[in-house]
Design a protein around this nucleic acid. Structure first.
Length: 123
RNA sequence: UCAGACGGCCGGGCGGUCGCGGCGGGCUUCGGCCUGUCGAGGAAAGUCCGGGCUCCACGGCGAAAAGGCGGCGGGUAACGCCCGCCCGGGGUGACCCGAGGGAUAGCGCCACAGAAAGCAAACCGCCCCGAAAGCCCUUGUGGCUCAAAGGGUAAGGGUGAAAGGGUGGGGUAAGAGCCCACCGGGCCGCUGGCAACAGGGGCCGCAUGGCAAGCCCCGCCUGGAGCAAGACCGAAUAGGGACGCCGCGCCGCGCAAGCGGCAGGGCUCGCCGGCCCGAGGCGUCCGGGUAGGUCGCGAGAACCGUCCAGCGAUGGGCGGUCCAGAGGAAUGACCGUCACGGGCCGCAAGGCCUUCGACAGAACCCGGCUUACAGGCCGUCUGAUCCU
């Protein structure tokens, strides 16, 4: 992992990217669900997207959930993400109220188990 | 001190480490990096009114339809908003509440109850008269009891949201604005006020209710759509047009278009049969237009002081400031510390915990309204109570 240059991290911004990731294997951990799609397009950058549905709460709650997930991803994806993959982090209930250490743990263990191939198959 | 009324304001502070968006500067191997600066709200919300802005429609004015508004005066770019005042209702009071124009323009409705709900009527009653019946003795055109029919009333009871003004007195067979006083109402002057309206005077005894958030009438206002408005740039691919070059097989007829035959190609790996194709290709340019991009996109009905005018809403002068502009959508994560509130322990001083900290996130921009909101601060006023 500590090779010459770490893979670049880009945000997923278009709807087709999210739809593709939604069919990928996923894993649920605490207050977060992570979908992991191997793009297989030859590029080694990592894509990250965030989603919080209305079920989580109003606009304030959804925005805060995405911000916390974004901060967690900023810290953990360079360490545990696999190059050439797209990750979509979906906020579940409690993503804003869960303690920061536990939210970090949720994301970390989910990423590690995804890297180990221990995920439910996608649709 | 305790209750309460009204108005205004705040929505943790400071410091640090990572990180994000816009803009400026520097560096760059064009991927990015460094640095400076700015970066959510009082409601950013609901999208309910009023405007700006943009496009569409439109010769001008008016009318109709539809919708909205509705005491009077003022403020404003405008408003259904705000201020002041009036009227009605509530409260001991500060204050609060009111879709608050028109009910002799017309139509309609007034449930249930009640005799009766709009036009005058009469259920229980009251009063007059008194047939028939009965009783009395002074035997009469007699008196008394009960009371039918007829008539007079609307006082009292009862129903109702509302029953044809109210209270008191006179009057009467009983009653009644029948008469009188006061209150209420209508009409006409007067005084004050810009006005809504108020005050007071005279006249009229005065049947003629309520609902217009039922239709309606009167006055006033409104063209439609909305930043996904709209403007510009504009690929790739597939269409359209112009020009240039090359080509449009062979034979027969024909000027040509075309027809027939033979080649050639496709369905199909080969053959046979069948069906179809058999004239376009390339290059340059032009135009529409999609994805995408840029603009619209923030110096204004701005904010902060201060002065003046005004009871006030607000207006004006002077000085200063520049204050978010994203587009899967920037404000986050963590730590320290100090407060406030909260919880626990303690007789107390105090100690401990606090990831327990309201409602909630700009999306073109303003002015309002409405709704949500932990906790807290300030001012004015009212009613009690205590002290001097």
């Amino acid at each position: 992992m500590a090779s010459d240059s770490p893979p670049r991290i880009l945000r997923l911004k278009s709807r087709p990217q999210f739809l593709a990731a939604s069919r990928a294997p996923w894993i649920s951990r605490g207050a977060v669900v992570i979908q992991d799609r191997d793009r297989g397009d030859g590029s080694d950058h990592i894509g990250i997207g965030f989603t919080a549905t209305r079920k989580v709460g109003g606009a304030v709650v959804r925005n805060r959930a995405k911000r916390r997930l974004r901060e967690a991803a900023r810290r953990l994806v360079p360490l545990h993400g696999r190059p050439g993959h797209d990750y979509v982090l979906i906020a579940r209930m409690g993503a804003t109220t869960r303690s920061w250490a536990r939210l970090l743990d949720d994301v970390k263990t989910a990423l590690i188990r995804l890297a180990a191939g221990d995920a439910r198959p996608g649709a």
